[in-house]
Design a binder for these strands. Structure first.
Lengths: 147, 147
DNA sequence: TTCATCTTAATGCAGTTGCATGAAAAGGAG
DNA sequence: CTCCTTTTCATGCAACTGCATTAAGATGAA
């Protein structure tokens, strides 16, 4: 007798697994960073965006768009980063409402210090489990979700 | 002259995109659920696990494992669900420390009421952007990350 | 110019999460 | 049994997030 083939996983299963997997792996990476004495990943992400930007400077609204964060979360995250001395807030020269945020040398140093730990964490909790080609596959499929 | 091929995206790029994409899509789905007047997805997930369980009943520690949540988050999530009447907490018959959590009929009703909204949200914010085979591909690759 | 509208950023408050700890029962070695 | 370790669940407190609102400057139509 013929074996019944299992039904193909529907999109909803892929959705559920996407949420579970990315959440779990993120938690593990954050745990490793913290164990190494570093601040949360969100801090790293802001510093990285700034380090790549012209003059190491960005407007908060730009950070908001690049990191896909809510406006008030950006505002407070920048507060914390400024309080810790990793960025500095300047009055925006071209927009009276605006703020300009610049990476400080301390921020740049933190970025460089965190990188090995971050890289090792991603390797241990993510890359290690992938098979050849998986990274490209993921990158390509997920790219359709964030245009 | 030969065109230089772009470097293949490294695992770290796949990691970054995984976090961005899953976070962004999750936020959009949650926004739709809320717009329809429903509680957060976490509530749905607990109710769903209970509905699938023997006697519609689970121990908190089981929910913790299935949902990959921290223990204190489960404890408080169950508090809220019990407060809203969607589950009831019973003393575990076989374990004096333990609690047993059972889905109430109100909880079952909420589950059924949320499903169409949830399904539509996932369709609109996730499935819609996928191409044929993507769901299976994602499911398979992500499966390696949560053994 | 003038005024209504949009954009940028901050903040008070309530709800949620993370961390550390504690209480109580189960499990297990001797 | 006795004692030590482990498991299960709750909670005080601090930090963070979401929501709603506010303030202030930019933008653009008339």
């Amino acid at each position: 007798m013929r074996q019944t083939t299992p039904p193909p996983p529907a999109a909803i299963d892929a959705w559920a697994r996407l949420q579970r997997a990315s959440g779990a792996v993120l938690a593990r990476v954050e745990t490793r960073l913290k164990a190494d004495g570093f601040p949360p990943l969100g801090w790293y992400d802001v510093l990285l965006e700034l380090s790549r930007a012209e003059d190491k400077t960005l407007r908060p609204v730009e950070i908001e768009k690049r990191m896909l964060l809510a406006q008030y979360n950006v505002s407070r995250l920048l507060d914390r980063l400024a309080g810790a001395g990793y960025i500095e807030k300047l009055k925006s020269p071209e927009d009276g409402r605006g703020v300009s945020v610049r990476l400080t040398s301390e921020g740049d140093a933190l970025l460089k210090a965190m990188w090995p730990s971050y890289q090792a964490a991603v390797e241990a909790e993510f890359t290690k489990y992938l098979e050849p080609g998986d990274a490209e596959t993921l990158w390509s499929v997920l790219g359709r979700l964030v245009p």
